Amino acid sequence: MQASNDARETFAAVRKNEDGDITAFRTSTGRTLSYDEALREVSSGAIAGVNAFKGRDGETYLRGDADGDPTNNLDALPTF
């Protein structure tokens, strides 16, 4: 999920709850972020390859940047 000339962190792994919802992220530098912490960092531009969007329910969610490669979607990342 990282562009070759982009020095920002990326998400390397996810933690999911029993319903399969992502609850936390591990970054490319090994930091663990809660979903809310990750949302703040993505919104501030600190994390590459991910964007925040407002769902139909009015909540803000994270998703991988659309690049046509389903293997790097957030749900496809390894779990930790």
Score class of each variant (00 low, 15 high):
56 R>N: 11
7 A>F: 09
41 E>Q: 15
42 V>R: 00
1 M>N: 08
18 E>W: 05
44 S>M: 03
54 K>S: 07
66 A>W: 09
75 D>F: 05
65 D>N: 14
12 A>L: 13
29 T>V: 10
33 L>W: 15
24 A>I: 03
11 F>H: 03
73 N>F: 03
65 D>C: 06
49 G>A: 04
17 N>E: 07
24 A>H: 15
5 N>W: 08
71 T>D: 14
77 L>C: 05
69 D>Y: 08
27 T>Q: 11
42 V>F: 00
67 D>H: 06
74 L>H: 04
4 S>E: 10
5 N>D: 13
35 Y>T: 03
10 T>P: 01
8 R>G: 01
3 A>T: 03
68 G>A: 13
70 P>W: 06
40 R>E: 14
20 G>P: 07
68 G>S: 11
76 A>L: 02
38 A>P: 14
7 A>S: 14
10 T>V: 14
13 A>P: 01
76 A>Q: 12
44 S>C: 00
67 D>L: 03
62 L>A: 09
46 A>R: 13
54 K>L: 07
75 D>P: 00
11 F>G: 05
40 R>W: 01
15 R>P: 01
75 D>G: 04
80 F>A: 02
2 Q>H: 03
70 P>R: 08
2 Q>A: 10
26 R>F: 06
73 N>D: 14
71 T>A: 12
79 T>Y: 03
51 N>K: 11
20 G>K: 07
11 F>S: 04
3 A>Y: 02
32 T>L: 11
60 T>L: 05
30 G>D: 14
15 R>M: 14
34 S>H: 12
76 A>C: 01
67 D>A: 08
77 L>K: 11
55 G>V: 00
4 S>H: 06
46 A>Q: 12
4 S>L: 11
31 R>M: 12
18 E>I: 02
36 D>M: 04
5 N>M: 03
20 G>M: 07
66 A>P: 06
8 R>D: 04
80 F>M: 02
70 P>N: 09
24 A>L: 08
41 E>F: 02
27 T>W: 12
58 G>R: 06
64 G>V: 01
42 V>A: 04
12 A>H: 12
32 T>A: 08
53 F>C: 07
12 A>T: 08
75 D>I: 06
39 L>E: 12
62 L>Q: 11
54 K>T: 15
69 D>M: 04
8 R>M: 04
42 V>T: 04
63 R>F: 01
16 K>D: 01
27 T>A: 10
80 F>G: 02
59 E>N: 13
48 A>R: 09
13 A>C: 06
65 D>E: 12
53 F>Y: 15
16 K>C: 11
26 R>T: 10
23 T>R: 08
43 S>F: 05
79 T>K: 13
21 D>T: 04
16 K>P: 00
60 T>C: 00
23 T>S: 11
35 Y>N: 09
62 L>W: 12
57 D>H: 04
71 T>E: 12
40 R>N: 13
48 A>T: 12
9 E>I: 01
24 A>W: 10
6 D>I: 03
38 A>G: 15
25 F>L: 11
48 A>L: 00
64 G>I: 00
61 Y>K: 09
12 A>M: 07
72 N>K: 09
40 R>H: 07
36 D>H: 11
32 T>E: 14
76 A>P: 05
67 D>Y: 05
6 D>N: 09
24 A>G: 14
80 F>Y: 14
59 E>P: 02
37 E>S: 14
33 L>D: 09
12 A>R: 15
51 N>Q: 13
15 R>H: 12
47 I>T: 02
55 G>H: 04
51 N>S: 10
